[in-house]
């Protein structure tokens, strides 16, 4: 049997992702003991493990995006359910270290059309970043902006460095660290959503912390 090397890499990443998934579930099952010497390293390994899983998922998707166009599987989903799920995941990841809040603006409709899996992957990536940099609080928000559903993650960190803001705003690729990869990934996902000529967007800015927003038309 002959292997195409890129397919081999994709298969390998895939396998690793599944193994890591199991590892992550195993780590989840270790009960906390109220003893910092035990609990902190367990928490840290859980976070790290989840982070690696998510990064691999992104790598697979970007690999796909390079080779062929991403066709998002768009259907009607509830933004309320989405925000609740992301909040629950963020809360579990932070284990009380960071305060997680979620808000839904009144104007957000009961249903919106998007690819739930892609949007969740992008938001979880943003959550990982924020959990790593926030001081004490993180806010997940759904609102309506320019007729689009805006899903935001707002933290109380020092904010995005200038070069990242620039690279996202100007469409130049930034790829010296993991952060760059994750944001590129969010951008690909946002842009794969379009509706009646309007394309989705990733917007970053600083407002007493970093603000990450996905705009879905």
């Amino acid at each position: 049997m002959k292997f195409d090397s890129t397919d081999l890499y994709a298969a390998l990443i895939h396998e690793l992702k599944n193994d890591l998934g199991l590892l992550s579930m195993t780590l989840e099952s270790i009960p906390l003991q109220g003893d910092a010497a035990h609990d902190e390293p367990v928490d840290a390994s859980r976070m790290l493990c989840q982070g690696v899983v998510d990064r691999l998922q992104q790598a697979l998707l970007i690999y796909k995006a390079i080779n062929q166009q991403i066709h998002p599987a768009i259907d009607a989903y509830s933004p309320h359910d989405l925000v609740r799920e992301i909040q629950d995941r963020a809360t579990a990841l932070s284990r009380g270290r960071i305060q997680i809040e979620a808000t839904l603006a009144e104007a957000v409709p009961a249903l919106w059309f998007f690819d739930r899996d892609l949007v969740e992957m992008a938001l979880i990536n943003a959550i990982h970043n924020s959990l790593a940099h926030a001081c004490s609080a993180l806010q997940i928000k759904a609102s309506m902006v320019e007729g689009c559903l805006a899903l935001s993650v707002h933290d109380d960190s020092a904010g995005y460095p200038e070069h990242i803001l620039n690279s996202v705003a100007t469409n130049t690729s930034y790829r010296s660290s993991g952060t760059g990869l994750g944001l590129q990934f969010s951008k690909v996902i946002a842009q794969s959503h379009d509706n009646r000529g309007r394309q989705g967007e990733l917007r970053l800015h600083n407002d007493q912390g970093a603000v990450y927003s996905l705009l879905l038309p």
């Binding site: 998934g21 359910d81 799920e85 579990a92």
Partner: peptide, 9 residues
């Protein structure tokens, strides 16, 4: 892989 929170939700 998915987290328990995803399954629950």
């Amino acid at each position: 892989p998915f987290s328990p929170e995803v399954l629950r939700n």
